[in-house]
Amino acid sequence: MKNFIGNVLFLDRSDINTDEIIPAKYLTENDKTALKPHLLEDLKLPGFDSAKDLDDKQIIITKANFGCGSSREHAPWALEVNGIHVVIAKSFARIFRQNMFNCGMLAIALSDADIEMIDSEFAHTSTNVSIDVENGIIHLSSEEKEYNIEFSISDFDKALIKIGGWVEYADLHY
């Protein structure tokens, strides 16, 4: 199982698409590590600078419909090679969400209210998150406060996370 702990990058926008996460011109790479410097390079978000803002961040917290658009698994791979194994959002596009779990990574959907609460309490502070997959708990902490939020993923998703991904699971069962 991958590790699901780290510092948070807040992306305050809905509908961030996979072209923004990794532009199509890098889809000619057959080596995932080549994607590393280009993560979120075309993100349209005022004030965001992918060269600086990704530094030492392992968890993304964002709004609705994250990962919409192209099916490219290069999007989760670009996150993975940057050490980001978790995205927490109000909702995800189907293919992106499936790609995350297929790679043994976590895409956690929380209610609008939970995301707004996290946003107001933590967004402008340096925040650390650790995730207890087994018990479904997100632990958030900043210098001033700590908070636990419950989440749920399906048993099938949990099985993918534990075994390392869909190739491993399918190999065992089909």
Partner: peptide
């Protein structure tokens, strides 16, 4: 549409 892992399987 699916990602590369789904495609691979």
């Amino acid at each position: 549409g699916v990602g590369t892992t789904d495609l691979e399987v």
